[in-house]
Design a protein around this nucleic acid. Structure first.
Lengths: 120, 120
DNA sequence: TCAACAACTCAAGAATCATTGAGATGTTAA
DNA sequence: TTAACATCTCAATGATTCTTGAGTTGTTGA
């Protein structure tokens, strides 16, 4: 992740419809959702509007697409999201580790590394 | 952190000068930097331009300011940054914990919680 | 091949945003 | 009080972005 990529990603995330799409796809998991189904979830947005935002997100590397029959399936690009966090928080917490604990807790609760311990 | 706050924060971070300011202040730590010093670091940007971007960042909750004599000192609002990460990554990694490990590693390397265990 | 479907592309208009330059506010020291 | 300094505020201009609607491409099944 470099500055240019990060700027594109943040610009993509700064628009209401696109932020909702990303969060919807993050919770949808690796199976993803079709463009039509995403549009339905976005208050029935028009297909051209969905296409505009989805291609914006794909260019920013935040979502990935694959064709399945007539539909195109989109899923969240979690590695880009993680890279964005890494870029933004690099060298954070100079001597004040406690301020980052909320973010830490969020990630560790669902992204528990290969240590084998379970959580709630 | 709610959707509206997140949109403001991402919009603030999607502009080159502002993203640089935030990252500069993240590495500067809690002591922060004066508006003038930040402007110097931004290729000598004009004072009105710095003021525009700094107030944008402050309204988004990404930086905090305090007056010190003639200068105004800005510092990164790390709790907002952490909250933004928490908002974006909530419910991530449905069954695929390995994809979030890079972000985890970044945060844990500087934000080791109060558990006392060391790492690489 | 044809009809129906799913999604994309393109151009135009409205809305939003960044930069500039002039001027205003607040602070310090003589 | 005055001068010098640091930063903020405001209005105007130019650039970018979002939405809409019409048309196009690609896929499926009869």
């Amino acid at each position: 992740m470099n500055e240019k990529q990060a700027l594109h990603a943040f610009a993509a995330l700064s628009q209401e419809t696109r932020l909702r799409i990303v969060r919807l796809l993050v919770t949808a998991g690796p199976e993803g959702m079709s463009a039509g189904a995403i549009g339905e979830a976005m208050d029935g947005a028009s297909s051209s509007r969905m296409s505009f935002h989805l291609s914006h997100l794909e260019q920013a590397g935040l979502v990935e697409s694959r064709r399945d029959g007539r539909s195109i399936i989109y899923s969240a690009a979690l590695t880009t999201l993680a890279g964005l966090v890494e870029f933004l928080m690099r060298d954070c917490c100079q001597g004040h580790p406690e301020v980052c604990n909320p973010a830490m807790a969020t990630l560790s609760s669902c992204c528990e590394p290969t240590k084998g311990t379970s959580h709630v």
